[in-house]
Amino acid sequence: MMKEEVLSVLVSNHFGVLTRVTNLFGRRGFNIKALSVGETENPAFSRITIITEGDEQTLNQIQKQLSKLEDVKKAVIIPDDLLISRELLLIKVSADAENRPQLDALISEYSAKIASQQSDCLTLELTAAPEVLNLFIEKMRSYGIMEMCRTGSAALALGTQTVYHDAK
């Protein structure tokens, strides 16, 4: 059975590490649905968050193969019940006097922000769980999406346990 999971990967913060990680996904035929990367509070480490999909055996392989990379200090799948996941969306939609009231209502409903507005278009900003972004994007379609950009998820697990637990 195929399942979507959030992988949190703590890696050494130096050049080439992201290539090693994505190269592994490529050559073993693993799927990357979204990816985000950034520094952590410790300048020695970066954190890569990957949304991936596979059956149980594949997900298990992804985690184990990643753990074998020298630059990967820890790779964990964050369980659904502990997952806090947020993603940023920037979306540019056509706007005019006629549709503006409806757009404003949606902006307010989703707690989105107006990042920039021109006479004929709005650039909206929304930070939320990825599935909320999906709903918002669907709602925007009828207004004419000119372009959009998603960052990929940032994710942490609930509670006091951290990715540093048992890290190499």
Partner: peptide, 11 residues
Amino acid sequence: IDPSEISKNII
């Protein structure tokens, strides 16, 4: 010795 070999090809 390599955990990733377990259940890679055969469960």
